[in-house]
Design a protein around this nucleic acid. Structure first.
Length: 319
DNA sequence: AACGCGGGGCA
DNA sequence: TGCCCAGCGTT
């Protein structure tokens, strides 16, 4: 049984997806068993996340996906609810100010995503009649929407046939099919081909599989300490069968430092700007980063360049 | 292909 | 402390 669990009732996805039946001939012979097991597990163990509500709509899905880029679900959920209440559709967000949007993004990290999300809203309003597009090319043309997010929106919001390859899916497939502890540092063609070969041909089944395998990676097949005892596909898992060989790419995986970096300085400045209703003179910013005034200036300049801060005669402002 | 970009929680 | 998290855009 999964550790943090879930809901008294089965989770739902999209509108009328068929149950995970399985006569879909795509993929290796084993694939059918694999899919059935993962989907059955999902039915009873999935988290009841609000953006999976069938009534949520494509805008809700798009907002959730952008927020979830490199940010854990638990931190996204309350902010997502707030955004949906405040800006229930693209037109609403398109009318919001930069400062409002950045203020409301608090705690999620990577605040440039908030600006891009509002830009998405403007483009959707001006070029797509206020509705989230479903074509891949149109989605990819939106700021901040890359390969993963476009596929996720197409699959989850439009029940399209799309290969959804996030960090969870990559890890699950890498382990179960590839026998590797962790996926390579950058997404490879081989991974795309593997995922495509496992994707059910029928779009509804594909969408179901996508969300189910992603959830498995999030709850059971976790990066740090996988719960193989509770895993519905442990008997299919090559990594397990081969005795859990260590991460082959460990040497090439590089960690990003934090202490003393420009990123930390930027974050500190942003927190101060968010907390202040009025412009902050540079003198009042200096105590935030006493160790290196040059670095502070660099951080300020980059924030202004990114559109996250404005330099007025009276000081720096959010947005 | 590699790098910059937040921030919090947990082993 | 190091690692991880439903990645993207730029170089």
């Amino acid at each position: 049984m999964p550790p943090r669990r879930a809901t008294p009732h089965p989770a739902s996805l999209g509108v009328h997806l068929p149950p995970c039946a399985g006569q879909d001939p795509a993929g290796p012979p084993d694939a059918l068993d694999l899919r059935r097991a993962v989907c059955a597990w999902f039915e009873e163990s999935a988290r009841d996340l609000p953006w999976r509500d069938p009534a949520a709509g494509a805008w809700a899905v798009l907002v959730s996906e952008v927020m979830l880029q490199q940010t854990p679900v638990v931190r996204v959920e309350p902010i997502w609810r707030e955004w949906m209440h405040r800006w229930p559709d693209p037109r609403a967000l398109a009318s919001a100010s930069t400062a409002e949007v950045l203020q409301a993004w608090r705690g999620l990290g990577y605040p440039r995503r908030a600006l891009r999300l509002r830009e998405c809203a403007v483009v959707i309003r001006d070029h797509h009649g206020g509705r989230v597009p479903s074509e891949e090319a149109h989605l990819r043309a939106l700021p901040g929407i890359g390969e993963y997010t476009a596929a996720a929106v197409r699959s989850f919001a439009f029940t399209a046939h799309a290969v959804v390859l996030d960090t969870n899916v990559r890890r699950v497939l890498g382990r179960v099919v590839g026998g590797e502890a962790l996926p390579p540092p950058t997404l490879t063609r081989a991974e795309r081909e593997r995922a495509a070969s496992l994707l059910p041909r029928e779009p509804g089944q594909a969408a179901r599989w996508n969300v189910a395998v992603m959830e498995l990676g999030a709850l059971i097949c976790t990066a740090r300490s996988p719960l193989c005892q509770d895993c519905p596909v442990a008997r299919h898992c090559r990594w397990r069968a081969e005795g859990y060989p260590p991460d082959a790419h460990a040497a090439r995986r590089r960690r990003q430092p934090w202490e003393g970096t420009d990123r930390q300085a930027r974050g500190r400045v942003m927190a101060a700007l968010r907390a202040s209703a009025q412009p902050l003179p540079r003198d009042e910013l200096e105590p935030l980063w006493p160790q290196d005034p040059t670095q502070l200036d660099r951080a300020l300049a980059s924030l202004v360049a990114d559109g996250l801060a404005t330099h007025t005669p009276r000081g720096y402002l959010l947005g």
